[in-house]
């Protein structure tokens, strides 16, 4: 029986020969993502800016009366709603910013929610309110802070773990990879203007976990090879390690992507953004595992001696003495 081998045996691609082009592409992509964030911004959901989101299904219509709704809600004087289709064309989400003065009077946002649901119910008898989310300004501010804190803490904790288990160069490499994964994924959200909410932060935390997973497998192999082939030139050794783990990287990522794509296409619409973020992140993570794990270690000066226990002066003399005695 012929088995599927996505990466042929004895594959030997000289990834390091392309380290500079890949690095430049990488840096450009990150700069692009950062520029997008500054110019385009993120389509922040109510979790982070406060406000309300109402999900409605128009059970008797093929398509939701978006234009009418926009006018009706606009006429309430709470500001313009953002109306988006959501799964089927007769399902929509209506998002609104917090009304003015809601910081000091939290009850205003509740009044807005009531007014909007009331006007939808009154004008569209077939409207079924599927869900209401309302978040006040104070809560959204906290959610934003804790999200950022969680991301930063996770990145630092993981980098420290890798530093302890490997060497500091590996920790720095991992941190760079983390920043890259998060920045590019967030950049994608800026580009597409998909809604960025709490779930997306959860997705980012998840994907840095998995992306680091990849890097650790490569690092582990580098460590092993550094001990095994003491004489091999470093670039060659790094290429060897990446190539040896290439098949695993591809197979695992494909496994994840198979299940994620199933979720993306067939799963609940409510978590589309969440799944999309993780899917994107897996792609970006594979790229950084294959192309960026190794060069960083060279630049940061990993050597074959990094994993050899430090020899004390006395030991060295003893060894030299032994060497002279037994040529």
């Amino acid at each position: 029986m012929k088995l599927l081998k996505l990466v042929p045996d004895n594959t030997n691609i000289h990834f390091l020969r392309w380290q500079w082009p890949f690095f430049i592409v990488n840096v450009l992509a990150m700069l692009g993502a950062a520029a997008l964030l500054f110019t385009n911004g993120l389509n922040l959901g109510i979790d982070f800016v406060g406000g309300q989101m109402i999900r409605t299904t128009f059970t008797q219509s093929a398509e939701a009366p978006v234009t009418e709704l926009r006018e009706e809600i606009d006429a309430l004087g709470f500001g313009e709603p953002v109306i988006q289709a959501f799964g089927e064309p007769n399902e929509i989400s209506i998002r609104m910013r917090l009304p003015d003065g809601a910081d000091t009077q939290p009850e205003l946002s509740a009044q807005m929610t009531n007014a909007v649901t009331a006007v939808i119910r009154a004008n569209h008898p077939d409207a079924r309110i599927d869900g209401v989310d309302a978040v006040s300004g104070r809560v959204s501010g906290e959610l934003f802070e804790t999200s950022i804190l969680a991301l930063v803490l996770a990145s630092i904790a993981i980098s420290i773990y890798i530093w302890v288990r490997f060497e500091w160069q590996f920790g720095v490499g991992a941190l760079f990879a983390l920043v890259q994964d998060v920045l590019l994924t967030v950049g994608m959200f800026s580009l597409t203007q998909w809604e960025f909410d709490l779930n997306i932060v959860a997705a980012l935390l998840t994907l840095i976990g998995y992306s680091l997973n990849d890097k650790i497998v490569v690092y582990d192999r580098i460590r092993e090879n550094l001990k095994k082939y003491r004489r091999m030139p470093l670039p060659e050794l790094l290429d060897l390690s990446v190539n040896e783990t290439l098949s695993r990287t591809i197979v695992t990522s494909l496994s994840l992507l198979i299940t994620l794509v199933a979720l993306l296409v067939l799963g609940p619409d409510v978590i589309f953004g969440f799944t999309a973020a993780i899917t994107l992140g897996i792609f970006i993570g594979v790229y950084s595992s294959i192309f960026m794990s190794a060069p960083f270690l060279i630049w940061l000066g990993v050597t074959s001696d990094s994993f050899v226990p430090k020899e004390s002066a006395a030991d060295r003399q003893a060894r030299k003495a032994m060497g002279r005695a037994e040529p």
Binding site: E107, A110, I129, R138, I258, L263, P268
Partner: peptide, 30 residues
């Protein structure tokens, strides 16, 4: 004062479970 409210209709939840189950089944088989 109410500072956060999240309400979900049972139908929407059931819909999510159904779609989630299908996604899990198809993903697993693939």
């Amino acid at each position: 004062t109410v500072v956060e409210e999240r309400t979900v209709r049972a139908e929407l939840g059931a819909d999510s479970i159904g779609k989630g189950a299908i996604a899990i089944a198809v993903g697993t088989i693939a």
